[in-house]
Design a protein around this nucleic acid. Structure first.
Lengths: 76, 76
DNA sequence: TTGTAGACTAACGTCGACA
DNA sequence: CTGTCGACGTTAGTCTACA
């Protein structure tokens, strides 16, 4: 499994868990709504700073998000 | 503390722990030696894929590296 | 051995618009 | 609400070379 696609899946899961739309999440963490779509579909690779920003907006641990990505990649 | 600088410190620590030079690390993970220098000094921001590549080359857990970054940022 | 420099290509991330 | 498109500025990452 690709790193970007794994992160996209994790991001989507965490966003839904937070009960937010892409637009709301984008507003909170100061990114474009468009870009949230690109990330969730694994089109773009996030930088480390982006990961921390997103996790902060989602009130979840960036370390845990990366752990989910690692788990997802070791599976398929 | 800046995200990039925190990651740079962690990278340097883990590289020394592995007993590698910047050049050796660069060779293993397929990046430029020059770029290792930029990362360690916090000049450049790594992408998620880069983090996994570096961790793989250093035989350490990418999740643990991010955890160290998070710890480092919460301190100063 | 590492830092730095410049010039370059590829990718990140913005912005407005439309299905 | 989300995907997509195009155009754009900024930064990630390459490559060569020198202190």
């Amino acid at each position: 499994m690709d790193v970007a696609k794994a992160f996209g899946s994790v991001l989507r899961i965490e966003r839904k868990r937070a009960g937010l739309t892409q637009e709301q999440l984008a507003l909170i963490c100061g990114y474009q709504r468009n870009y949230m779509s690109l990330l969730e579909r694994g089109v773009h690779q996030p930088t480390l700073k982006t990961i921390f920003d997103l996790a902060g907006a989602l009130h979840c641990d960036p370390v845990d998000m990366v752990a989910q990505v690692a788990r997802m990649m070791s599976q398929s």
